[in-house]
Design a binder for these strands. Structure first.
Lengths: 107, 107
DNA sequence: ATTTATTATCGTAATATTGCAATATATAAA
DNA sequence: TTTATATATTGCAATATTACGATAATAAAT
């Protein structure tokens, strides 16, 4: 036990849960907001902005990359992170689909 | 360690993370979908539908209730669960706000 | 009053997540 | 080449989450 029983759910349910899990953290939300309002989205700037240790930020960036929500472009010794616009819109649509297709008829 | 450092984030960031965390589980997604398409949303039906043990379902329902996303109405020895429509729409708006207000300008 | 059915709570085990220090890696600068 | 800077990875400790058996609580049925 301790693990989610993914086998008993549909691919769509698991996919949505995976996406939401990546988003469900204030540090990752803050990172996305910071990246989005910066022209230069250098990793080190994020570390200074957010106030968590550099390895912690690096780990959060890795998780955001795991669902292709952000992309990191190496530029010299720095890495410039940006949001994957296509995926951003796609994920918003998946979430809205869930909210819209889930009928709300109370008993 | 092991805990999220909520102190360093804004109330909005923490609130969004809390909401997404409740949604970020396939069992809870399946529960919401099942409740929504049923006229009778009896707890026991959910247990049989989802395929997880009764205490596990009860715990998931508790988490959904923690953000007022569902309501349980006691009817005899049964409890009839339904989605809180007002909160449902409210939460969808909060999430869309995040997606819309987060500008996507790549570097 | 006793039994049965439904839901909630408690306790516990297994696994996941969060965060950081130490360290590795890689590039730029001196 | 050495040093400094930026990022990633590893290993670990603390806490959170998921799931379930056992049990409690409550109400209907007998």
């Amino acid at each position: 036990m301790g693990t989610t029983k993914t086998q008993i759910f549909t691919a769509e349910q698991n996919q949505l849960a995976t996406i939401l899990k990546v988003l469900a953290n204030p540090a990752r939300i803050a990172i996305l907001q910071h990246i989005s309002c910066q022209k230069d989205c250098i990793c080190n700037d994020i570390v200074e902005e957010i106030g968590l240790a550099q390895p912690t930020i690096s780990q959060h960036l890795k998780e955001l990359k795991s669902i292709d929500l952000i992309e990191g472009e190496i530029s010299g010794k720095r890495v410039c992170y940006c949001i994957n616009q296509k995926k951003w819109v796609e994920i918003q649509a998946i979430i809205n689909d869930f909210f819209n297709k889930t009928n709300v008829n109370c008993c």
